[in-house]
Nucleic acid binder design. Structure first.
Length: 537
RNA sequence: GCGGGUGUAACUCAAUGGUAGAGUGUCAGCCUUCCAAGCUGAAUGUUAGGGGUUCGAGUCCCCUCACCCGCUCCA
């Protein structure tokens, strides 16, 4: 029965949030003014952790990219596009849709309607009006789309059929009200959407645009309106041609970008998991359409392993392939790398999504911008020529729109996952908790302590500290007792502590205290730097 | 967005409607030869914010904000 315990976290989110504040990882934004919903600030330790994760991604993606399935190193270049772009970018990408209109979603058919176009038949019971209280209650109200003859007829038909089934007679020419009518606020559970048979699948009307608006220049009018980007990906698509024209890249290749994105979430929740300002690490992998499935599999595998490499080694990390009905209409495949956060446990929450986007984005931007974004595949041309393929066919086949595989990771969510994974309650320890970060991710790599502040120990410890700090984030601490200093390192997640004691002065050795086991070993003073390098770099 | 809960020092919590406190932590000093030891001293409060009732409000009432839980939502 204790197996169930392995899926439920040994700590609460409150505990983690408290530690994050206490140890300078994450603070509520604008806290002295009462905070602001959906925004968080990274403290000194938090920004160190975030930068370490970001730098690892950049290194493993751009500087030292993986080896491809064919044994060749991949070609991926970096990019840093502006947060604010021409609003036409967001029109083309589909982010400005149902712009000023409240929208209604159907949770079953996945269709989205303009709320003001949805009408609901009001077909009252003739018997009930005559004062007979024994009639069955009408629990089906059929909706249709305004000015859509077929959906209106369908709704009438369904209403009549339903009325017959429950044995009431309804008026022949019912009137109809807008779905947004206040009368329906409590009756939504009875309303049947235009394209489904079961009631209660329509959400309440809501403004759908999640983008933050801003105005360019001093004049606040519609002409100057723009948006903070809701994803970094579009900046990559809009620069695809620039990169192609200048960087001597050939398909397949990738463009990678890390940066802030903004979404005006209805309900920010769960600490930094869903915040209105967050950071993404996205890469768009452009490839020939016929290779796209191979690359998709490659990247799903690659990205799952990468998260393991930064410390998410336990069974809290899973790959989850989307079902067909979960996919966006342009996407043929999508998988998430998910993590079991305390607030999702025993379920999982998204960490990264790897989507097969086809040529949806480039097509959309080509059409909207009237800029040719097709790729001329010279290698293919040569190959086809050698095969003796017809000239016209070569011309046609060697020019095509690349397909795109998009591994889109949440940096902010990654930091949260690292924090969750590291958080290890330990009642045996004075600190009560140890942050077991992967050494490469740890905000502080080492503590350097004199055992006591006399007999020359502080001088030796200072010298060691001065040496180490040229390469690593480390801390010198000579205050209070040695136990307290170790406890501080446990909470901060520093993997190693080096202590200069009496023996150091005679035999030039120091003790290394391991954060995870609290055990100690002695190593030579002049080997400390190498010791760290072996375990961190 | 809806419903419920919470909000006092950095943290954990006290304080009949009557002078805002303790422990921990932090800082300084002493002491200290390996896991938050001890001693001495110090700093830190718009009681989440605003309004009201009252001679007097941390406490009662109203509004706002933030966070948590459950729905809703999640390009």
């Amino acid at each position: 029965m204790n197996d169930a315990d392995s899926t439920s976290p040994a700590y609460s989110m409150d505990d983690l949030v408290a530690l994050c504040k206490r140890c300078g990882f994450v603070f509520p934004a604008s806290e002295i003014y009462g905070g602001i919903n959906g925004f968080w600030d990274f403290g000194p330790r938090g920004v160190a952790l975030k930068n370490n994760l970001r730098d690892a991604w950049w290194r493993d993606m751009v500087e030292c990219p993986p080896i491809g399935p064919d044994g060749e190193p991949l070609s991926i270049v970096g990019l840093d596009s502006a947060i604010i772009q021409n609003p036409k970018v967001w029109e083309a990408s589909g982010h400005i849709g149902g712009f000023n209109d409240p929208m209604v979603d159907c949770t079953e058919s996945k269709k989205r309607y303009r709320a003001d176009q949805i009408r609901v038949l009001i077909s009252w019971d003739v018997e009930a009006d005559s004062g007979d209280d024994s009639h069955p209650a009408i629990q089906r109200l059929y909706a249709f789309i305004e000015d859509d003859e077929s959906s209106y007829k369908s709704a009438i038909k369904k209403t009549t059929k339903y009325a017959k089934a429950i044995g009431v007679s309804v008026v022949d020419n019912p009137e109809h009200w807008s779905f947004s009518h206040p009368e329906f606020a409590d009756a939504r559970q009875y309303i049947v959407g235009p394209d489904v048979e079961t009631p209660g699948t329509l959400t309440e009307p809501r403004m759908f645009n999640l983008m933050f608006e801003t105005y360019i220049g001093a004049i606040r009018d519609e002409d100057n309106k723009s948006y903070l980007r809701p994803e970094t990906a579009q900046g990559i698509f809009t620069n695809y041609k620039n990169v192609l024209d200048t960087m001597r890249v050939k398909l397949p290749f990738g463009i990678a970008q890390v940066g802030k994105s903004f979404r005006n979430e209805v309900t920010p929740r769960n600490f930094i998991f869903r915040s209105r300002e967050f950071e993404q690490m996205e890469m768009e992998w452009f490839c020939p359409p016929d290779q796209s499935q191979v690359w998709y599999e490659f990247w799903v595998e690659q990205r799952t392993n990468w998260w393991k490499s930064v410390g998410l080694t336990g069974d809290n990390l899973i790959r989850r392939d989307h079902d067909a009905d979960e996919l966006a209409h342009y996407s043929t495949a999508c998988a998430d790398v998910e993590y079991r956060y305390p607030f999702t446990s025993p379920g999982y929450g998204e960490l990264e999504g790897i989507a097969h986007r086809g040529c949806f984005d480039l097509d959309a931007h080509q059409k909207a911008s009237k800029t040719k974004l097709e790729y001329f595949d010279q290698d293919l041309q040569v190959k086809l020529q050698k095969e003796g393929v017809d000239k016209e066919e070569i011309k046609q086949r060697s020019k095509y729109m690349p397909h795109v595989i998009e591994p889109a990771a949440g940096l902010t969510r990654g930091v949260l996952a690292l924090l969750c994974e590291a958080y290890t309650p330990d009642p045996e320890r004075p600190s009560g908790v140890v942050m077991k970060f992967n050494p490469a991710m740890a905000p502080i790599k080492a503590g350097i302590f004199p055992l006591v502040n006399k007999d020359g120990m502080p001088e030796v410890a200072q010298k060691l500290y001065q040496e180490l700090r040229t390469k690593y984030a480390c801390q010198y601490d000579g205050k209070q007792s040695i136990g307290k200093r170790y406890a501080r390192m446990d909470e901060a997640g520093a993997p190693y502590s080096f202590t200069i004691d009496g023996d150091t002065l005679t035999d030039q050795t120091v003790t290394v205290r391991d954060r995870d086991t609290a055990s100690q070993e002695r190593i030579a003073l002049d080997q400390v730097s190498t010791f760290l390098a072996d375990r961190i770099d």
